[in-house]
Design a protein around this nucleic acid. Structure first.
Lengths: 246, 246
DNA sequence: GGCTCAAACTTGGTAAAACAACCTGTCGGC
DNA sequence: GCCGACAGGTTGTTTTACCAAGTTTGAGCC
């Protein structure tokens, strides 16, 4: 009675080989059995074997060299960079998850850089929500969200309390906008005296200044997230795989 | 006489269809010609057509629905973030591509941070090649490569001239090491007086300090690339897609 | 007229075969 | 001993063929 559709043979082969690599039957660096050996062992045709091996290669489990064979790389740990980038993190984490203090929440004239990212005319106004985040009892970073005025209407962003919802979830639920990708720009500069005071920074210490333009599928930015990180307490980390082809 | 290898047929088909989508011959939302139509038009077999369409689907150009057909989505916004990250860029670009001056090339005591990344004991020695890169006639950035001593033996890295080969290509050819992935750490700090002088930096300007640990498939770092970027002239940019699932 | 169902389309998957390109040994001649 | 030719292995690409599964359409029946 099993109406459950059985997965295609090549997909089963992919799973089997993945499990063997993870179990250590095929240790990283060693050679995988050749196509002919796999054909014999599993009793399938060559196109089926090749289809499975192609999937494994595209997912980063193995590498192949014409004339030599296929080599095990291991589980593609960071196949797709999954570390939390700052822009993404602040966009999806509810404010209630970390203590802090709302510094500003209202319309303001936008800085030039934010205007350019949001594609607004220079010196126009936009909605700003700025928050000082506290970690371990000490001021840690300043997070600012810039939105076009029409996007801020009908939201809870003017509240002085921490938002229980993430900015992303909030905007998607209330305004129907969908995040497609984010472009981050990382700079360093000296903090203003006000910033240095709020962050409790020692003298002569720079800040990392991250601008994240949050864009929809058409490439239009509808939110800019700005994060100010004292360089003596924060650093940014990023990991990415290198394709052997290039 | 053309020894230039012609690309395989399915790859040519991929290119042709991509160009047609971009040119508007196949507008987004419309249906692509069926497999049989493509077989007739291009005079190739069905597996070749299917292989090309599979690539397009995996890259996000089209969607397919069994029983109905394949639908054009348009150019994939930024399928895989392909911007040059600093660590990768300096690892794969030959030094001869940009003018500059070799500052140091020899064994040195390693800084703590580099020792930790290379998994070397503190205060041990490693090979350092440091170079001042010049852009538009002005000093632009300082790039340093740290290698364990055994990896630097038998290479041209001690040369005071610019290397015609990339560091990555050099090491792969001479020592057989293969790059698998890179982990980058980005910090900001004030430059030392020596660094500020070499880079011709104005007073009170910080530098972006990027450490890139270049690792093989087993996770062992065998090169650390350090880049020092004056913050008044450089910023880092990174783009990444957001999975709609999360 | 409206419903049913079969035919004809679509994409998805498997099998068998052949050739090409590449790597690595071995065997031979020099 | 050294070097090249060659044989046998590997993966890469292409073709032919057939069946399965999903969708649409239209012909035929009620």
């Amino acid at each position: 009675m099993s109406l459950e559709s059985v997965p295609p043979k090549y997909a089963q082969l992919v799973q089997t080989l993945q499990r063997r690599i993870e179990a250590g039957d095929y240790p990283p660096g060693t050679m995988l059995p050749s196509e002919n050996q796999l054909i014999q062992e599993f009793g399938v045709s060559r196109p089926t074997v090749v289809a499975a091996l192609r999937v494994l290669r595209e997912q980063g489990w193995i590498e192949s060299q014409q004339g030599k064979g296929r080599f095990v790389r291991g589980r593609p740990a960071l196949a797709r960079a999954e570390q939390p980038r700052p822009g993404h993190a602040y966009l999806t984490t509810p404010e209630t998850g970390s203590p802090g203090e709302v510094l500003e929440a209202g319309a303001q004239a936008v800085p030039n850089r934010v205007a350019a990212l949001l594609d607004l005319p220079a010196k126009s106004r936009a909605f700003l929500r700025r928050r000082l985040v506290v970690r371990d009892g000490e001021p840690s970073e300043i997070v600012s969200f810039w939105l076009p005025l029409e996007l801020s209407e009908g939201t809870d962003l003017t509240s002085a309390d921490a938002l229980a919802d993430s900015i992303r979830g909030h905007l998607q639920a209330r305004k129907g906008v969908r995040v497609d990708h984010i472009i981050e720009q990382i700079t360093a500069r000296m903090p203003s005296t006000d910033e240095a005071k709020r962050l409790g920074m020692p003298k002569n210490t720079p800040v990392l200044d991250v601008y994240a333009a949050v864009r929809d599928a058409s490439g239009r930015a509808f939110v800019v997230v700005n994060v100010l990180l004292p360089a003596d307490r924060h650093e940014l980390e990023d990991a990415y795989p290198i394709s052997s082809a290039s």
